[in-house]
Design a protein around this nucleic acid. Structure first.
Lengths: 67, 67
DNA sequence: TATATTTATACCAGAAAAGGTATAAATATG
DNA sequence: CATATTTATACCTTTTCTGGTATAAATATA
């Protein structure tokens, strides 16, 4: 359900990056990274992909997690 | 890379739904379904999830496909 | 092949996301 | 424990996505 935000948060920590570092590297705004890690639902798909690309990942179709 | 649009298009066909049916069932606009199946990159995440939910799926993190 | 249905593309108005800045809260570090 | 760094939240402007309508193109059907 919120695997996306958790994934980004964890991966970022692993690489010892601040939200600011991540935002800069991904080419998105700092505010966007914050919103993402905070679980905002209405993010733009391409921006999310910009962030995930840093980790060799992207957005895809997965089985829906039980709430 | 465009597995998302292909997934939706295929699944919709399987269920013999028109784009209009799908839009109505998902509670999104017809234009959104069109954009999605046409591979628009800047869609809103929550709307994509609204569509995928019809198929028991959702957006998640997957390995990045080679271009 | 003619007609009906479905899909694609363009234009527009309204809604809202993105990102900047500022500030408060939380966390890390000395 | 004090200070510095990082993260969270709020406000504001600009940008643009959504979805409606209209039309053209493509596809299905008879």
């Amino acid at each position: 359900m919120d695997s996306l935000r958790l994934f980004v948060k964890q991966k970022r920590k692993e690489l010892k990056l601040t939200q600011e570092d991540l935002a800069f590297n991904a080419g998105v705004g700092l505010r966007f990274v914050r919103d993402l890690e905070q679980g905002k639902k209405t993010l733009r798909l391409d921006k999310v992909n910009d962030v995930l690309a840093l980790f060799g990942k992207e957005v895809g179709v997965v089985d829906k997690a039980r709430e």
